[in-house]
Design a protein around this nucleic acid. Structure first.
Lengths: 140, 140
DNA sequence: GGTTGGCGCTTTCGAAAAGTGAGCGCATGC
DNA sequence: GCATGCGCTCACTTTTCGAAAGCGCCAACC
């Protein structure tokens, strides 16, 4: 965290004085970017583009469960926030490729770290879930 | 639908690459954990607990914009997935404290890396947004 | 001693977001 | 011709979110 500021976090989001980026305050651009990345499909989309340019439907096949609509929307948001580049090949047949920008790569690197932790902690998570469900009494 | 990895479902080898958890496949526990963390308020909740135990309403005040309902829900999900611990102090008045588990801390560390990147890239993101909005006849 | 207010949630009820399926223009394969 | 795949976009349904209120409990104020 760059700035630990519990007192100023709840003031108005106007960028009046110092431009201290703070994800904890709503209205900060970094929070928009965070929401773009951590939206329902953001993480997997960015992570899926990490190995290089990928075409729309290839990416869709890779990210199990994403709908065309949501993938398109997610990619557009990420493109707008400067993390993804969209390239249209006007060849025949025309196809569209997506890739990461420099910022996108920097984000992706952190994300992959997260993913690794999560993938490596499956057993721990499963155990915790079972413990929790046993205590609280229901699974659904 | 606990663990259904299409790539490793057939084999039953040693522990080295037997359990290849894959966030890209829906149904994998790691994906559940990912969604708990990257849900709307997951990142900020985990990050907000990083400095130590915090009480419910203190956390709520710190995370600008979160509702009580969503914070409670987020915390419950994170607790179920073994990243957060809930402790009730039976003193008078009784209050509730939340803190991170070991897994929670590991996740939080990656998250803070992400947050740093994002907070440090505010200018880049803003510029990209303006470029995008100028090119594409505006998103109203 | 009655009211107010904070705490940690849970419930209720619109509103917003995600998911579903269809369609579209184009090009190729059968 | 007809079907299929591509990269989306457009209605429409379902799920989720958010603001407000309620609740039981207790401390503090008037």
């Amino acid at each position: 965290m760059t700035t630990d500021s519990p007192a100023v976090a709840q003031t108005d989001p106007g960028p009046t004085d110092a431009m201290i980026a703070d994800v904890f305050s709503r209205g900060c651009t970094s929070r928009q970017a965070l929401e773009a990345v951590t939206g329902r499909w953001g993480v997997l989309t960015v992570a899926g583009l990490r190995d290089g340019a990928v075409r729309f439907n290839a990416l869709r096949r890779r990210i199990d469960g994403v709908s065309e609509k949501m993938l398109a929307q997610t990619l557009q948001t990420l493109e707008r926030d400067g993390m993804v580049v969209r390239e249209v090949r006007t060849s025949i047949p025309p196809h569209v490729e997506y890739s990461l920008t420099g910022l996108g790569h920097r984000v992706a690197d952190r994300l992959v770290g997260l993913l690794d932790v999560l993938e490596g902690s499956v057993d721990e998570v499963t155990a915790a879930q079972q413990r929790y469900d046993a205590t609280r009494g229901q699974a659904s």
